[in-house]
Write a protein that binds this DNA or RNA. Structure first.
Length: 111
DNA sequence: CGCTTTTGACCAGCGC
DNA sequence: GCGCTGGTCAAAAGCG
């Protein structure tokens, strides 16, 4: 399960269940992009991971959507088991988790 | 047996 | 109008 077109990228576990449903090479950024979907019941959260083909350290993970169920890891023990708790979905595109080497020059190419 | 992963193809939108 | 890219789906195979 760890062979991405010749890349050995290890995605940061968030405690959720993801199923890879596609992978493509984005020429716009010259990087690989993998698409994951949450396999939880009633959960339509999606995860997108992209990393440079030659620099595995440029791993970048982007969470799309929110989870309507708690996580198997970050379970504070409260505010969960309820879809009406926005606090449980702190992944609202706010938790862009990076790999172990966050590219300081990730910002934009030109600015 | 169940589950997961992998690849190809298709579609849509946009730019010029 | 055409070409191109991005995104998703489907099917198949392998493993424990």
């Amino acid at each position: 399960m760890d062979r991405e077109a010749g890349n050995r990228v290890q995605l940061p576990e968030d405690g959720y269940e993801w199923k890879k449903y596609g992978q493509k090479f984005i020429k716009n950024i010259d990087k690989f992009r993998s698409y994951f979907k949450c396999q939880k019941a009633g959960c339509n959260a999606k995860k997108r991971a992209e990393w440079s083909e030659t620099e595995p350290g440029d791993l970048r993970v982007v969470y799309e959507g929110v989870h309507n169920h708690g996580s198997s890891q970050d379970q504070s023990g409260s505010s969960q088991s309820g879809a009406s708790n926005t606090s449980a979905n702190q992944y609202n595109l706010l938790n862009q988790v990076f790999g172990d080497n966050p590219p300081s020059d990730y910002r934009r190419s030109g600015d």
